[in-house]
Nucleic acid binder design. Structure first.
Length: 577
RNA sequence: GCGCCUGUAGCUCAGCGGAUAGAGCAGCGGUCUUCUAAACCGCUGGUCGCAGGUUCGAUUCCUGCCAGGCGCGCCA
């Protein structure tokens, strides 16, 4: 909002200067960049336009800046300064700032919400864990990232739907069912029920593998949850399932685990518009459809008894197999079918969040999207780096073989929803992050999330106090009628400028798909408020006009903090702490 | 070997080609008779991995090295 206003004012000034013959642009349309300077002495906003214009106009940058400044005069600015090698520094006028404080109050929970940003329909796919076990902590990171990114992009004016892809077919589901079945046999044996030799063999193989005696490839899952599932099945059905095929155990386990994942994510505040099972694709013959489509596009060929996609023609390292020699489709082929399905559902922009260990998969998937007839950027992949769990400075070891691991649910139960979300969101996705469980809890008093929440609670407390005073209560009820001319102090001004930059910061974070940027903003905003609170007493029955103006500023701060906490981060904005 | 990510204060990490590189934690020292001290104010702390290049200007872009992580299946 602010950037746009300054930007268009600059463009206008540039136009005027050029048509007055003061600046020769020689056909160049310069990119206008406006930024917030690091040093507050350099104004609220600054531009380097004169520096970039120096060369094409063949003038020295300070000369160019002088010409621009002449044409920039506007009541929006209190001061426009030429500084350093040719920077133009802007200081916004109080008049302008006060008008826009009113705007925050008016728009309230919609302050920060942008108009429709483009005409694309985005599908954001994330987590997409296999239903073969509990979510691990890495999933938690993707869940937070995806959920916040969706909220962020929607607020920035993008049309976004979210989706969880359920990998519910293939070998891993069979292994899951077989594991539960084996444990079920173990349950029966423990109750003195006689097993057939075959059943006993399955159970023995399971225990052998778990104890590490089996040197073969791992075929079973060994987490405690497998035992629990088997036990539940026994409690519900007794020995009735003894003769049932593995497929029944697959289905039972799949459903139970999926339900648990859904509940956990729901409790964590992450919801999806769609839970899309891979099995649906198989049922609809979508994989064959996709293969046919690629065949018609002329990008496949048979080689060595398999069907290949010539992905190298689209920038991949090498060609990839779609149908194996045994006639079954590869995971890649299934994934192509899935993405084609997304496109045909009308989503022309797909964003997937993947673990960084899948990065080698990106070129082939983008090749497929192009072969299907869509531009490469129809698919954007966000890679998230790993999370290392620590406890008291020691890395928490996880073993896939024994299923010994801390689940995501355990972490968020232990640390709490708000802190877990905030701590995971603070870092850019492409940075591996260390998460110390003890630190996350013990930090609680100095935790950044509480720092921001505390600012909100403080504001609410001010309004509670005001409501108890007869003279102040009426003013607090009618803050839109405040005389904002009472606001003159630096702390008030800095806070207000920060509030007004919220829509810009939000849009920037959304376009870059980097929700973590807003945690920095939220911290800075909270710090400015705390500082204001210390310097500028809000409630004063001897100066009602000033009190009312400060209440207006305070309420505007509450609006922005609340919007970012609840709207973007999905965490609570407590009224008291 | 090839590819991707990372390297910034004691620790965890922000940082959009700009001006004297930041925050939190840790450490040291101040501030509550007044709206919540989960706060505020000050101090200490840096070869932005190393070396080149592009640029008026590089932590930021490019190249090469060094270090750490990950990936290079007719697995999913």
């Amino acid at each position: 909002m602010l950037l746009k206003a300054i930007h268009s004012r600059l463009a206008q000034a540039l136009d005027q200067a050029a048509s007055a013959g003061l600046l020769e642009l020689n056909g160049i349309t310069p990119e206008i960049k406006v930024e917030v300077p690091r040093d507050t002495r350099h104004g609220d906003y600054a531009t380097n336009l004169a520096l970039t214009l120096a060369k094409p106009s063949r003038k020295n940058p300070r000369q160019v800046a002088e010409i621009l400044v002449e044409h920039l005069k506007d009541q929006m600015f209190e001061n426009i300064e030429l500084a350093g090698p040719g920077f133009i520094n802007f200081k916004l006028s109080w008049t302008w700032l006060r008008e826009h404080l009113d705007l925050i109050l008016e728009r309230n929970e919609n302050f920060g919400q942008h108009e429709r940003a483009d005409s694309h329909r985005y599908l954001l796919e994330f987590v997409s864990a296999n239903p073969t076990g509990p979510l691990h902590f890495g999933h938690g990171r993707w869940a937070v990232l995806g959920d916040c990114l969706a909220r962020l992009m929607r607020t920035a004016g993008f049309e976004v739907a979210t989706e969880f892809y359920i990998n519910d077919t293939g070998a891993q589901i069979n292994n899951l069912g077989a594991s539960v079945q084996a444990c079920y046999f173990g349950q029966l044996a423990a109750k003195g029920i006689t097993l057939t030799a075959e059943e006993q063999g399955v159970y023995d193989a399971y225990t052998a593998e778990k104890s590490g005696n089996n040197k073969d490839q791992i075929r079973f899952y060994h987490g405690d949850y497998i035992q629990e599932l088997a036990q539940k099945l026994y409690e519900e059905y007794g020995s009735d399932l003894q003769a049932e095929p593995v497929s029944l155990f697959c289905e039972q386990a799949r459903t139970a685990i999926l339900t648990a994942q859904q509940q956990e994510l729901e409790e964590f505040g992450v919801s999806f518009d769609e839970w899309f099972p891979e099995s649906r694709l198989h049922g609809e013959g979508a994989i064959q459809d996709a293969l046919n489509h690629l065949h018609e596009a002329g990008v496949t060929e048979e080689r060595d008894g398999a069907l290949w996609f010539r992905s190298s023609e689209y920038g991949d390292d090498k060609d990839r197999v779609l149908v194996k020699q045994d006639g079954s489709s590869t995971y890649f082929a299934n994934d192509i079918a899935y993405h084609w399905n997304k496109l045909r559902r009308g989503y022309d922009r797909m964003i997937n969040i993947w673990g960084a260990d899948h990065h080698g998969y990106i070129p082939r998937m983008q090749a497929a999207v192009q072969a299907l007839g869509y531009p490469k950027d129809a698919l954007q992949i966000l890679l998230g780096q790993i999370v290392h769990l620590y406890r008291n400075g020691e890395m928490v070891k996880m073993s896939k073989r024994t299923g010994d691991m801390i689940t995501f649910g355990e972490v968020f139960e232990e640390v709490g929803r708000d802190a877990t979300r905030y701590l995971l969101m603070q870092r850019s996705a492409e940075t591996a992050l260390d998460f110390d469980l003890e630190l996350a809890k013990q930090q609680s008093s100095d935790n950044p999330v509480f720092y921001v929440q505390y600012a909100h609670a403080r504001i609410c407390s001010i309004f509670r106090t005001a409501a108890q005073s007869e003279s102040l209560a009426a003013l607090a009820e009618n803050i839109q009628g405040a005389d904002l001319g009472q606001l003159i102090k630096d702390e008030e001004r800095t806070l207000l400028v920060k509030l007004l930059s919220y829509p810009d910061e939000l849009a920037f974070a959304a376009v870059h798909r980097e929700p973590h940027r807003l945690t920095t903003y939220a911290s800075e905003l909270a710090a400015l408020f705390h500082s204001f609170y210390k310097q500028c007493r809000v409630l004063d029955d001897k100066n009602l006009e000033l009190s009312q103006a400060r209440l207006a500023l305070t309420h505007a701060t509450r609006i922005v903090i609340r919007n970012v906490l609840t709207g973007i981060f999905g965490i609570s904005a407590p009224e008291s702490m």
